[in-house]
Design a protein around this nucleic acid. Sequence first.
RNA 1: GGGAUCUUAGCUCAGCUGGGAGAGCACUUGAAUGACAUUCAAGGGGUCGUAGGUUCAAGUCCUAUAGGUCCCACCA
Length: 903
Amino acid sequence: MKELSKTYDPASIEKRIYENWEQKGYFKASPNPKKKPYTIVMPPPNITGQLHLGHAIDNALQDILIRYRRMQGYEALWQPGTDHASIATEARVVEAMREEGLTKEMIGREGFLKRAWDWRDKYGKTIVRQLRKLGSSCDWDRERFTMDEGCSDAVRTVFVNLYNEGLIYRGNRMVNWCPFCHTSISDAEVEYEEKEGNFYHILYPVKETGEMLELATTRPETMLGDTAVAVNPEDPRYKHLHGCHVVLPLLNKEIPIICDEHADMEKGTGVVKITPAHDPNDFEVGNRHNLPRVRVFTYEGLMTGAEDKKAQDEYLLSGRAAEGEPEVLDCGKYAGMTTDEARAEVLRDLDQLGFLKKVEPLTHEVGTCYRCHHVIEPMISKQWFVRMKPLAEPAIKAVEEGRIRFVPDRFTRTYLNWMNNTRDWCISRQLWWGHQIPAWYCEDCGETIVSKEAPTVCPKCGKAHLSQDPDTLDTWFSSALWPFSTLGWPEETEDLKYFYPTDTLVTGYDIIGFWVSRMIFSGLAYTGEVPFRTVYIHGLVRDELGRKMSKSLGNGIDPLEVIEQYGADALRMMLLTGNAPGNDMRFSEKRMQACRNFANKIWNAARFIMMNLEKAEIPENMDPENLTLPDRWILSRVNRLSQEVTDNLDRFELGIALQKVSDFTWDEFCDWYIEMVKPRLYNSTDETKAAALWTLRTVLSQALKLLHPYIPFVTEEIYTALHPEEESIMISSWPVFDPALDFPEDEEKVEILKENVKAIRALRLDMNVAPSKKAQVYVVSQDAEVRGVFEETKHFFATLAQASEVFVAAEKDAAPEGSVSAVTSRNTVFLPLSDLVDIEKERERLKKEEERLQKELQRSRGMLGNEKFISRAPKEKIDEERAKLEKYEAMMAEVRERLSALR
RNA sequence: GGGAUCUUAGCUCAGCUGGGAGAGCACUUGAAUGACAUUCAAGGGGUCGUAGGUUCAAGUCCUAUAGGUCCCACCA
């Protein structure tokens, strides 16, 4: 048997244990018809990422579920992998290149992709190495990458299928454009931030009447692209202007006044300028009224000029331009300015010409890019879209019908909200890192070919002048397929048949819309089945002050440092305790210490047990006949605990389950049971010593198993030391309830003992009995059964109660005069302290006790005296209350008798 | 504007389907020769945000309300 050090040192064992597990292949899973599968796919971390506490909590939860099911005998697969994270990675690579003075354009697409792959090979493995430090028991041999061959094949398959079904289309639409990242982003990727701005009131002269039409805007520079102004058709103020025109200041261009619902009579002057090329609402208005679209910004976020106009005119005339392409304006003196510069200049000019009426300050929400936080620009752009409506419907139904369940339940609403309001998904990105869109265009006839493999000639005109769409797909397009692409789809693999649909998805609430919803509709659409049955949602880990951890605040906590200092087990435990599912939690140094202390506690308990086991031969099995009362008690307790913990885990109440096992281990097992058996262990002639040792070993082993999913390292180290004949706790079996070890009556008996020990300890403190001084204890009860309990347990009861001797009697007069006493629910204890007894103090104590009981009696009698309670409450509750009343009455009588005896 | 969530001991938070308020930390008092001071024993501390309602019974269910946090939509 191994020697364990005095304090638990996680750093010295974690690496060795993890390597052993991995080397032995315990994490592996493969289709096994004899077992039931249990599958979790890991949310793939970004290859740009460093391990943070978000990964830590996410992985801890998954590992707990996987280890639990594995021990229960499931074929448990935890499928790992990483995400190419197109925009994030591309930004990092571009940044790195900038330091060398290079740009994407300088090295070209091929060169750039090579660099990106190099980058991925160099840094992409970091996160995976770091996940191992947490103890994650994933099947690493199955590690996947969203851009590996299989996943890429799945992506192309889906794209082609959706295209053929008419669920993917390409068109000129309003998209959110990030001029900095130089790509479109989806609606979901826009973050709104509050910014200070102004509301500018501008005057547009009406051509027909000469009056000035006042309107307000936050973006005056877009007026160059105005192609109409709108009023509400019902608005009496402007009825006379229907069909009239305004002359756009600065450009002297005539544009119509149109009637549209979009103009809100209640807001501002009720007049709104329409810029179809640079505002999503105006785009819609433009469609309704067939307005020209005039683009005034470049994709770099500058005002357009003569060059831009020329290029666009040529494109429009080439015949290859798709429907809906905007015109481009030569902004003249404003050309080449940034939008901010142009705004200032436009305002100055308007003011000079008398068209600027007033300026009011205003704070408003401005859309920004979720990656770089630059203001996004709504632009018309030709993009690929997924038609969401037909896909969303079955995805909504699956959740409504309970085929997929969210835990906690409230996130069902978040999901449904998202799904019910989703608009078509813009999936093309003007990036190079990612899955290039499998669409080719014929440069001769303009035909579009969508295909998994690159075509060599145009099927329409037969010519070979084909070029692939340069854009790549939104990174979530491939993550959406993750639960089945990782299992081999579109091939009908054995893995897919066996492990799919997966069981539990564990993720944070922040990506329910981005990811969870897309996996659900994708799974249903492409595999015909839900991708998972339960979605377990957890919250964010915040810093000690409750702030979100972020780079800019510099308040991020590195899990690796925490592991180094406290151990992976302590970190996992800290992330699991005192937190309800779906709620955010705070990182806490104090709680880290508490969790480390727990690991140390169980470590030392094991050390104590093993020290004693060394000196004795303990049989594998124990005849229950040889067990003593405390043995049966603790065995019964751990037995029922196993059942409870299993139930909690099945209901995803992971925090509650952990709380129960750790409380049991520390309070009941260490502080009570071990203390109870010490006298037996130290007595070389005690006949029940073997039973005690057997019980110690058995209960510790069970507790270790129940704890193992949470704190895998320390439990493994102890378990294998305790059971040299076994390979690993990982592959041991999960404890199940054993009716042969259920001793409810013995549990009650031990409760009596505990109550008495506590009463005596309190009494001694109250009476200032020196801790080193032992006192005699008289236990008095008329109940022979109660007396029997004390007779049976005298040997350790005396130790726990710091008694020199324990006398058990039926009558009070057995106790000497001048004793202090305490009344417990089944008996009375006396401590003869004649020389120490302060009668007044004793009376005070008893008075206090009387008062307490009085309150209890009042409450109990009140309840039982209530006719409605008697007639309406369930019978068990009434009986329970009657039993309490009886107990309190007996105790009260005893206390009063004691009081009168003092006189 | 729509939705979610939180408000419980000094602090951080548990409290599942309603049936006598909990944990950790902090605080007070006490404990050094055989697992552990990363320990042990004992203790103080809460009208469960407020107001109503349902119920024999409400921290728990319903309604309103105050304050905090978050998500979605919109803001010309």
